[in-house]
Amino acid sequence: MTSPNARIDHLVTSGTFSLDGGTWDVDNNVWIVGDESEAIVIDAAHDAAAIEAALGGRTLVAVVCTHAHNDHIDAAPALAAATGAPILLHPDDLPLWKQTHPDRAPDGELADGLTLTVAGVELTVLHTPGHAPGAVCLYAPELSTVFTGDTLFQGGPGATGRSFSHFPTIVESIRQRLLTLPPDTVVRTGHGDPTTVGEESPHLQEWIQRGH
């Protein structure tokens, strides 16, 4: 049963994204799902202290990584060390993880169909490769929300112009796994503003024609 106090908290942290020899300034969305006593963090980006402060003393059940680009995982080890929470990542993203944290492995694996439970809320892992091989989204039907990391944004798919990414794959992931969700499902993204499945689904053919 969903906790009547289950909620989604949101903070934005700032830092850099680095891959393939380039570095860019980025603002990242960090999502916290839980109630007054426990929570999970989705994407521990840039600032472990700010994320820990936002938890407000709640038990952190897990640090969940939607993918292993450095801007989504750079604060994960410090947050895990401060809270004792395990870091969970899809194993297909281990090569990317090791670029940022060569000496600290994740604590557990995410897999398609795995269910994580916090505050009575179930979050189902959807493996959605394309932006990264091990990219996942987390679907919480009781909250009418899907956390998409960098797979789907307001206005289209995540970037596929760098190593480990593939445009046809991300389009198939979005078509099969995300646009099949109820239209009123809120899409909470890794960067930028939320959208809904219903707002994005009419544009699939445009994205395919636009290609990369």
Rank of each mutant, 00 (worst) to 15 (best):
A132N: 09
Q205T: 14
L138Y: 09
T23H: 09
I170C: 03
T66V: 09
G130R: 05
V12C: 08
H72A: 12
D74G: 11
D9W: 09
L110M: 12
D47A: 05
I40V: 15
H69A: 11
A6E: 03
A140G: 08
R162V: 13
P157A: 09
A80Q: 04
L152F: 07
L116N: 10
T185F: 00
L152Q: 07
Q99K: 15
P91D: 11
T117M: 12
S163C: 05
A76G: 09
T13A: 01
L123F: 07
I40E: 01
V61W: 03
Q205H: 13
H67K: 07
L60K: 02
F17N: 04
T169L: 12
T145Q: 05
G155S: 03
D47N: 11
L94E: 10
D25V: 14
D107A: 10
V41E: 01
L55W: 03
A68M: 09
I40N: 01
H101A: 06
H90K: 08
L126R: 14
A132G: 14
V121M: 09
T145G: 04
S37Q: 14
V30I: 14
V187H: 02
D9V: 02
P133W: 00
W97P: 02
E109V: 11
V118S: 05
L94H: 10
P168A: 03
R162E: 14
D93F: 01
T151W: 00
P4V: 05
G149C: 12
H203P: 01
A78C: 02
D27R: 15
L110K: 09
Q209I: 05
P133K: 11
L181D: 00
P86C: 04
A140R: 02
E109Q: 14
P157L: 03
E172L: 07
A39Y: 04
G84R: 06
A68D: 06
V186E: 13
P4E: 01
W97G: 02
G130I: 02
A135T: 08
P106T: 12
E200V: 01
V118Q: 03
A132P: 04
L204T: 04
D92L: 12
A48D: 03
H101L: 03
D74I: 15
V12Q: 13
V121F: 02
T16M: 11
I73Y: 07
G192A: 11
C137E: 02
T2L: 13
V187F: 03
V63F: 05
I208Q: 12
L204R: 01
G34E: 02
Y139E: 10
M1V: 13
